[in-house]
Design a protein around this nucleic acid. Sequence first.
DNA 1: TGCGTTCATGCGCCTATGCGCATTTAGAAA
DNA 2: TTTCTAAATGCGCATAGGCGCATGAACGCA
Lengths: 96, 96
Amino acid sequence: MPLQILTALAEPTRLAAIRILADGQEHCVCDLMKQLDATQSRMSRHMQTLKQAGLVVDRRDAQWVRYRLNPDLPERYRAILDAVLQAAQADERIAA
Amino acid sequence: MPLQILTALAEPTRLAAIRILADGQEHCVCDLMKQLDATQSRMSRHMQTLKQAGLVVDRRDAQWVRYRLNPDLPERYRAILDAVLQAAQADERIAA
DNA sequence: TGCGTTCATGCGCCTATGCGCATTTAGAAA
DNA sequence: TTTCTAAATGCGCATAGGCGCATGAACGCA
């Protein structure tokens, strides 16, 4: 159901996090916190939401938890994500 | 900003309404109400939300208000909508 | 003008959700 | 074991949002 995907993406901080992860790299919570100017608990919880929606996966690496886009996201959801990312980027260019 | 689009779509009744309108035809509120088993005020409010998000447009026709997908929805948002519709339909087929 | 139909909206209620604060857990290094 | 950093989570609070109920507004028709 795309509903959970949409709900997960329909929040500013979460969408911003996804956009950062869209670089294809792994990012720890501390990195996302700093870039998005969010508190630790807030950032952690949003990442849980994205994880439960299947949009991201995490991995323990020493004391860090590395998040990245879920590489196994079903094609039909990946298409939604791509469209959203493109629109967000386009809007950004227009706003500038 | 796709945020408003996503928020508008991230609600079951609204997404269902959009899926009905995806047939390209006009539908009055009374029609949507019946198909979705929703009360009148509930349906009306959801349509307002979709309208404000720019996803649909309405038109007075005697005592009816006809809703249809916004034909002038910017391309980048249309792409999101199409991806969502396709995913929803695919999920439906899988569930069956 | 009066009546029926369709739709919008003011109001209050209730739940969902985002947040900060504080604490706990996990792991590394001393 | 102690101490540090990173991350998750329990708790309570405040707001957002979805809902029903009732009313009002728009329109057609007699």
